[in-house]
Design a protein around this nucleic acid. Sequence first.
DNA 1: TAACACTGATTGAACGATTAGTCAAGAGGA
DNA 2: TCCTCTTGACTAATCGTTCAATCAGTGTTA
Lengths: 217, 217
Amino acid sequence: MTEESDRREEILEAALEEFSSKGFRGATIKSIAKAAGIQSPALIYWYFQGGKEELLQAVLARHAPVIQALRHPETLMERPPEEVLPMIARAYLATANSPIPQRLARLVIGEALRRPEVADMVAKRGAVRGLWFLKTYLEHQVELGRLRPHDTRSSARALIGMFVPQAVGDAFLPALKESDGLTDEEHIGTSIGIFLRGLRPEGITAEGAEKAWGVVE
Amino acid sequence: MTEESDRREEILEAALEEFSSKGFRGATIKSIAKAAGIQSPALIYWYFQGGKEELLQAVLARHAPVIQALRHPETLMERPPEEVLPMIARAYLATANSPIPQRLARLVIGEALRRPEVADMVAKRGAVRGLWFLKTYLEHQVELGRLRPHDTRSSARALIGMFVPQAVGDAFLPALKESDGLTDEEHIGTSIGIFLRGLRPEGITAEGAEKAWGVVE
DNA sequence: TAACACTGATTGAACGATTAGTCAAGAGGA
DNA sequence: TCCTCTTGACTAATCGTTCAATCAGTGTTA
């Protein structure tokens, strides 16, 4: 259960590479076999009797934990948004800049366009969980009086959404970032600044908030 | 030049339908012919000598004006953000809910993943133009003293990004919106509220702003 | 009017290439 | 010998594309 065959792992790696760059239909069993360094496509059927389809499922399953991610140590819950939100934004944009998650995103997006099950998996395991965590965190901060009361379903979407164009630029449309040269850190600073100021309770200034909640940096 | 053959138009329609639902590779010349109501795939080669590839290019070219869109009547420039931003958000989400733009988005996203030229077209004709308009508008509002000074490259991204999760939910991941039932109008109200409050000049209240700038609704 | 030819539009059948998947046989240890 | 792993050769189907033939009009000529 724990020890996977080396060959199987090699095939899965090659399949992710091929599927993500060429798409499910564009990648052929032979090209995957070649990329995995094996002589015959027949060997793939020894490890994945279900053929190409099972291979795709196995690749997705192989990285499902990564997709889930965003394990939320409850420690974050108590820390103030001035600290937590930039952390989340940095983690998000860092993911968009890493090769494996990029390939996974290419594969998953491409397949989600045609396969409702994949779209559903993305929505439920990825998006809904992420939004649920953000919403819970923001609600808790409202209860603590650090943010003014509002609809956290909406603010959770708005918060993560603010970084989507930049992430898409990183991962898929380099021309977008080149157009004005906005760096990730600049964007994080400005947009979280707007977000927090927009949700600051009445009559509280930035300096007062930092002192009251013990912001580290 | 103006009068296109009916048949050619029928084939283009069928091709958009097929390409967007099955992808470029997934859609076959025969299935497109069938969807267009013609008996033989050979007819497609009479109208598009370049074959399947030219057919794809023709479908994209057919709707290029729609992709550009966002013609910006200068009248918008002078009107206050309390009016303009919800208008933009509504137009954006309405587009995400319309069938033809949805199909186009499916096709374009799917192809942009594998074809750098398509990705570049999306970035330059779509994203960069849209961001440039928003940035210009926001800068102008800063000059008018209706928003406090800030990096408008970042706020333009943040603004349009806030609606991306909702738009994606509309067009691709229905499970996302079902998860908490947030409506488009609720989201527009809350998130633009946060955005505007976050960018309000120092010492100006919401009521004061509305009276000073003559917000209609 | 009738026969004809020309042109654009449409068809069914076929070709060659490529694909996912199969199979029997072999290699190499235990 | 037995079992796991690996291979090259093969199959059956499907794909994009080509091609010769045909159809429907539309003048043109006798």
